[in-house]
Amino acid sequence: MKVKDLKEQLDLVLVAGEAGLGQTIQGGYCGDLLSDVMANATEHCVWLTVQAHQNIVAVAVLKEMAAIIITCGNTPDKATCDTADQEKIPLFLSERSAFDLAWALARSDTD
């Protein structure tokens, strides 16, 4: 599945990192503790988190993630979006929880 397919499947709002929409997603990770994410998230995953501060983009770049979904209605500031644009990390927003989104994604992903 490509990152761009996530948007429609999960009804997400894209706020930054459009240049990375063509990436292929391989797996996902839900986590809000950054050390846990650094330790356990896998490359090319989509990361679901309530964290919305600028440092999440550094984590995504270091782990070579495909995209970030900021969950539960949390919103990033402009600096976070600017960094995501620079680093080509698609940043999506959703009102739904990480569990809801992961559930919906697992059910819809037939690839």
Binding site: D32, L33, L34, S35, D36, V37, A39, T49, Q51, H53, N55
Partner: peptide, 8 residues
């Protein structure tokens, strides 16, 4: 912010 988990 998700830091300070004592995992670093």
């Amino acid at each position: 912010m998700g830091f300070g988990a004592g995992m670093g």
